[in-house]
Nucleic acid binder design. Sequence first.
DNA 1: GCAAAAGTGTTATGAATACACCCATGT
DNA 2: ACATGGGTGTATTCATAACACTTTTGC
Lengths: 245, 245
Amino acid sequence: MNNKKISNISVDCVVFGYDTETKSLNVLLIKRYLESKSEKKILVDDYVLTGYHVYENEALDDSASRVLKELTGLTNLYKKQFKAFGDPNRLTNEKDLLWIQNEEFNLRTITIAYYFLLKTDDVSIENNKYQAQWFSINDLPELGFDHKQIILEAYEDLKTKCLQEPIIFELLPDKFTINDVQDLYQSILAIEIDNRNFRRKLINKKYLVPLDEKQVGVSKKPAQLYMFSKDIYNKMFQKNYLINI
Amino acid sequence: MNNKKISNISVDCVVFGYDTETKSLNVLLIKRYLESKSEKKILVDDYVLTGYHVYENEALDDSASRVLKELTGLTNLYKKQFKAFGDPNRLTNEKDLLWIQNEEFNLRTITIAYYFLLKTDDVSIENNKYQAQWFSINDLPELGFDHKQIILEAYEDLKTKCLQEPIIFELLPDKFTINDVQDLYQSILAIEIDNRNFRRKLINKKYLVPLDEKQVGVSKKPAQLYMFSKDIYNKMFQKNYLINI
DNA sequence: GCAAAAGTGTTATGAATACACCCATGT
DNA sequence: ACATGGGTGTATTCATAACACTTTTGC
């Protein structure tokens, strides 16, 4: 394995994590902190996406997976390359320049941006060596480089895709309730959905398999649990050509 | 303007052109030809997408527009960045290596791929200095590099997008008939559409404006001409959140 | 028994589908 | 007059949208 970095090409990963408890769609960010030599002045104190240079003999998808594994330890997650960002000035605001002095960045780096889907709980951020932290997509902190834009474009893509493909289930635990799915759609899309209509629609999907199991440890009527069967989905999937313009 | 090339980053352009007469969705390709020094053996004789290195202080979108203008003379076309291709071996089959010797390529180049939409007629390919030629999307020639894959992925994206956004009109002349639109959908999607249902649907769109004009020079009943009003479309556009999984 | 969320049914409306013939024009 | 594609209407089916109350459980 040749681990020589390509100096001007990177991947950046927007990690979306959904928290079923708080019904919050979150983004995982890492801390960027730099003090002046004299330790008197804070030069940079904000957050960025996780990312890294692509290696010389590494495919882009593999770079993204590597970066994600390095941060979270997780593999085999849903991953989507959604856009390349290459504005000549994307790394050149004041704080970014300070930061880059400190690192080994080429000033004109283009980055291939990916997003990942997982459950917030699956990442243990305690004592994470990158000081990783979850932030609600609706309450992002100050971000370095062009990472705010990257996150927002990832989010747009997610909003579109979740209406067309069953990627929503990547954000939920293996066993979930119909209301979990509704809450998730409502969080992602920032809309209200009628519960009765939504239930009817989902319960009719063959690929949503009701389990012989109900919620436990809740102080209310425990809900029916379901799982998503990708097998059944793939078997039943029929492209429709509905023109919706 | 700094025209220094970035040696390992390029853009490639999939140029889709629709020909209303032949009802053919075409791709514009340029010739790649190389003989051995002795002029006895043809080493490379195939086609590739138009593309070029990104310049050091140039945005990716601008690179794509520049490349397209260089080939066709056209500007202000519909353009979409749809994917980055960066497999370490994407340029390393036998013929590609021969070709690269001849050019100034970095073996590990990643390319940001765009597609453009226009009318086949708008490009004059006579005496084009790149020997550009149109090929039906259904009958592509032998292609260099990974350009076949790039074209097919662009085509997939186009098939999806044309159902969701009014980009279809980028492929049609300013004045078109309802049947032109139907033919175009049928060409892109390779499906048959019921004419009566399709007409009803389209005629009800406010953004399709009937003109006080009919086809001329046809030896049959001349059809009503329409235009697409982007203004009206934008004004009327309402995001719908139909979950279609 | 009370709080909390799960779960349920009906009606109305609009869109998609399926389907076959007459019409207007140029030659 | 004829060949060619333009243009039209209806009935059925299906999905969505709107809407309020009862049920089940843990405490």
